[in-house]
């Protein structure tokens, strides 16, 4: 009987197994790296209908976040301002700017400016802004340094792991109540040490839920 397979075919099963392991490794690394909000969402900076600069308004002018995002400390939602809020100043400043045409039109007609939503948690997540900002969790923890952004970009993954990081160790992230809307302020831990952070969490009775129903309903 002649040889049908060359001699090298003897090592083929082993080589195949090694290759499949390698491929599996590559797939695992790929999925871990790419199939997470750290890749899919962080850096999302859509083009907005009005080139509003947070760096100018919140940074340079020093407007408080709440001037526009009214009631963020009173209810679950941090609201997007109506065009009237823009017109408070822009009825006198840059009144003829073509960039503000959409805002003026919205103010006259009452139809909202079609802002593009950047941070959007799934509908099964019940996030409450007021609960967080009234207990020392600053805007900057989830939204990044918006006061330095010309164009707002998604800064943090806002994944469940991201939420739990803080819910497990709130003492590392809390700020003095007066510093919550100051995006450049240090956390209590950075300012006065880990003990002070823990004390704040205790004194303010901060008990972030880690149970499912804390955030999901």
């Amino acid at each position: 009987m002649s040889n049908i397979f060359p001699k090298s075919a003897n090592s083929l099963p082993l080589q195949l197994i090694i290759f499949l392991f390698g491929l599996g490794g590559i797939m695992t690394v790929g999925v871990t790296y790419y199939m997470t909000p750290k890749y899919t969402r962080v850096g999302y900076a859509p083009v907005q209908p009005v080139p509003f600069s947070h760096a100018l308004h919140a940074g340079q002018l020093g407007l408080d976040c709440r001037y526009c995002h009214v009631a963020v400390d009173q209810g679950p939602a941090s609201t997007v301002p109506a065009a009237q809020t823009c017109m408070n100043c822009h009825n006198q400043i840059k009144v003829d700017s073509p960039l503000l045409g959409v805002v003026r039109q919205s103010y006259e007609t009452g139809n909202p400016v079609p802002w593009v939503k950047i941070h959007q948690v799934p509908d099964y997540v019940y996030f409450n802004h007021a609960v967080h900002v009234n207990r020392g969790v600053s805007c900057v923890e989830c939204h990044g340094k918006v006061n330095e952004m010309e164009v707002v970009a998604h800064a943090q993954p806002l994944s469940m792991g991201f939420c739990l990081d803080c819910h497990r160790n709130p003492e590392l992230r809390v700020r003095e109540p007066g510093d919550v809307f100051n995006l450049d302020s240090p956390t209590i831990t950075q300012q006065s040490g880990a003990e002070a952070g823990k004390r704040f969490v205790h004194d303010w009775n901060i008990k972030p839920p880690q149970s499912c129903s804390g955030c999901h309903r």
Partner: peptide, 11 residues
């Protein structure tokens, strides 16, 4: 990761 992009995020 972390590169700025303007198209709607992948799901």
């Amino acid at each position: 990761r972390g590169t700025k992009f303007i198209r709607p995020p992948l799901d």
